[in-house]
Structure formats: structure tokens, C-alpha cells
């Protein structure tokens, strides 16, 4: 009986997966293949928001549309790099689902976790399901000691100061009820890592029901990820900003 009603809900729900890209020609193809592999019998669409990549990312998305259908993969490009927050807003405008998933296209977010996000949301009725690397079943691969130390330090600092009630603040693999994402995103102004943290802290302060699922994070296979001194300074500024505005 419970199973039946869960299946019914699943059928009614539609999931819009927003994937911002910049020079992710190969990664976006692999990601989309994996999304379609792991989301069978689910009503969904992938919205690729490409910020004018010079490497032909849009070209490859068009080819993928030929394979999977233009109604399942929407390409909604923007002329140039305009930032992550506005990329989500841009994608959101074109989303037709009642749920929105945001994820990175660099394969650090594996689409095989999508079913567990969906299942968790249906089981708990949560407004937001966020992927966390820091619980049992989750994890990170490809970070050196320095990167781990920075991450732990940042996390302890944020938890001591903000009491957010969520274990992974800077992760960006999340499922939102569409109306909740629209509400939260409109009040967020930060960029980069801080943007992800601001989203979840504001949502938590607004009293939205947030659940977590474990995810593993394999640092970029193709291309490079960066974390330097300026990111750390930005993070600290963001923390201070959240402290006085939320």
C-alpha cells in the first residue's frame, strides 16, 4: 500500500535538473549519460545553462539532444560567464518540474545518487534534500591533507558560529521543491562556495524542512579545481556576512 502511494507520487512529480557549465564538453556528455542511466521511470528534464563556453559544450549538448530527445535536455545558454547564482535563476525560469535538482557537471557529483535524493524527499516530505559528504556512507576522494584541513577548519568555524543544523554547508548537490528554491535564491547575494552556504543557512533560518543523504565526492577527473588564499578570505567574509544578516 505504502509502496503504491510512493510510486504514484513519483509519477506525478517532475524533476528539473539544472546543470551550469563552462568548458565541460566531455564532462557534460558523461554526466547526462549517467543521469539517464540512473533515472529510469522518473519524469525529469536536464537544463544545461552554459555560459558561452568556447570549447563547444553547447555543440555537444545539441548532439545529446538528438540522442535523448529535445524535450528531455534543454539547452539554455547565456552569452558569457555571469556567475553561479544567476545561472540557477536562469535555469529555474525554464524549469517545468515541481522539484529542482542542482548539481555540478564535473563528475564530482555522481548522478547515481539522484534516486536516493528523490526517495528521501518522498519518504520525509522535505522541502530540501542536501547531499552530505560528512556522514556514514559519504566521503571525498582526491583531496590532499591541506585541502582536508581547510575543509574541516571551515566546517568547524561555520558550525560554531552559525549553528546551521546541516552537516555539509558548502556541498552543492541538492534537491529543492521548486517554490522553495525560488524563495531562497531570491534572497541570496553571495558567490562561489559562500553561495551554497548562504542558500542552506537562509533556508534553515526560514524554517524549511531539510533532510540529508550521504554522497561521495570524487574531485574533478578532467580539468582542475582550485582553492587558494583568496577563496579562504572570501569564505571568511561570507561567514561574517551570514552572521550579521541571517
Amino acid at each position: 500500500m505504502i509502496r503504491n502511494s510512493m510510486e504514484e507520487k513519483e509519477e506525478k512529480n517532475k524533476y528539473s535538473i539544472i546543470v551550469p557549465t563552462y568548458n565541460e564538453r566531455l564532462n557534460i556528455a558523461l554526466t547526462i549519460y549517467l543521469i539517464f542511466k540512473h533515472l529510469q521511470n522518473v519524469n525529469f528534464e536536464v537544463i544545461v545553462v552554459d555560459d558561452g563556453s568556447p570549447d563547444g559544450t553547447q555543440e555537444i549538448v545539441k548532439q545529446l539532444q538528438q540522442v535523448y530527445g529535445e524535450d528531455c535536455i534543454l539547452l539554455r545558454p547565456r552569452p558569457k560567464k555571469l556567475g553561479l547564482g544567476t545561472a540557477y535563476m536562469h535555469g529555474l525560469k525554464h524549469a517545468t518540474g515541481n522539484f529542482v535538482v542542482i548539481m555540478d557537471a564535473d563528475l564530482s557529483h555522481h548522478p547515481k545518487y539522484l534516486p536516493s535524493f528523490i526517495k528521501k524527499q518522498i519518504e520525509t516530505g522535505a522541502s530540501i534534500v542536501t547531499g552530505t559528504r560528512y556522514v556514514k556512507g559519504g566521503g571525498v576522494h582526491g583531496w590532499n591533507l591541506m585541502r582536508k584541513l581547510t575543509s574541516r577548519g571551515a566546517n568547524v568555524l561555520a558550525h560554531t558560529l552559525l549553528w546551521p543544523g546541516v552537516s555539509d554547508l558548502t556541498g552543492s548537490f541538492r534537491l529543492y521543491q521548486k517554490s522553495v528554491l525560488e524563495d531562497v535564491i531570491s534572497s541570496c547575494v553571495s558567490k562561489g562556495y559562500v553561495f551554497q552556504m548562504e542558500m542552506i543557512v537562509r533556508a534553515s533560518r526560514k524554517g524549511y524542512h531539510i533532510e540529508e543523504v550521504p554522497i561521495t565526492f570524487v574531485d574533478r577527473v578532467y580539468g582542475s579545481s582550485k582553492l587558494g588564499g583568496s577563496e579562504i578570505v572570501e569564505y571568511l567574509k561570507g561567514l561574517l556576512y551570514l552572521l550579521v544578516t541571517t
Binding site: 559528504r133 560528512y134 556522514v135 566521503g139 582536508k148 568547524v156
Partner: peptide, 14 residues
């Protein structure tokens, strides 16, 4: 930070 570092969950298998 120390405890978090010691218990840092890794996933080479993934």
C-alpha cells in the same frame, strides 16, 4: 578539526 581530520571519510573505491 583534529577529530574531523582523523575521521575524514574517504572513498578511493568510488
Amino acid at each position: 578539526v583534529g577529530v574531523g581530520l582523523i575521521q575524514f571519510p574517504t572513498c578511493p573505491h568510488e
